[in-house]
Design a protein around this nucleic acid. Structure first.
Length: 185
DNA sequence: CTTACGATTCCC
DNA sequence: GGAATCGTAAGG
């Protein structure tokens, strides 16, 4: 075996601590139909004792899927935008990973038709922007990302170079925790 | 029912 | 720096 084909990430990949899954997702491909992006920025939200996590205040209708099995989509709204998370850890443990940015790989024309006439560099460089570019919305709440749904994440012969951590963006609690992951380069 | 508040984005 | 804008969650 030399080069591994791109294939949906297995559920066991997601059944781990968000601090392991978040960096592991860097370099993988997020796909919805013809629109594909390379994940380049993620954030970990911990299942317990993380005041910035949505699950911190318990199980509600919105956070329901976080308590389910790993590998499913947790989509939520903030202002007029959507954000995509992947549920991680075993069922009952509400850890998750927020996908904060991707680089356009395929379907760029489609992305621009949804995002407007912006440069490629601004097409998918934010959690709300990438959801708009890939047309990910509340319809995908709870969807299986392991290859059975319309939105999937593929791994394979991807970049596994060094990862750097920084504090998470846009939160008011646990501001200093180094749970944002980007490529070192 | 009422109120407060965003894991954001875009414009001034 | 500030507004847009609306569902969610909590409290009366």
């Amino acid at each position: 075996m030399t080069k591994r084909d791109w294939q949906p990430l297995d559920r066991s990949f997601y059944a781990r601590d968000p601090r392991l899954v978040a960096p592991g997702l860097l370099g993988t491909l997020l796909a919805h139909g013809q629109a594909v992006g390379r994940i380049v920025e993620t954030e970990a939200y911990l299942a317990a004792d993380d005041p910035a996590a949505h699950a911190y205040r318990g199980r509600t209708k919105r956070t329901e899927v976080l308590f389910g099995p790993p590998g499913h989509a947790y989509v939520y709204r903030t202002r007029q935008h959507r954000c995509l998370n992947v549920v991680v850890q075993e069922e009952g443990v509400p850890g998750c990973v927020l996908v904060r940015a991707v680089e356009p790989v395929a379907g760029i024309g489609l992305m621009r038709s949804r995002r407007g006439d912006v440069p490629d560099s601004r097409l998918t460089d934010g959690p709300g922007k990438l959801c708009q570019a890939l047309a990910i919305d509340m319809l995908h709440y709870g969807e299986d990302l392991c290859g059975k749904g319309k939105v999937s994440i593929f791994g394979g012969d991807h970049d596994v170079s060094e990862v750097r951590t920084t504090p998470r963006i846009g939160i008011s609690q646990a501001k200093d925790w180094p749970l944002r992951y980007v490529f070192a380069a």
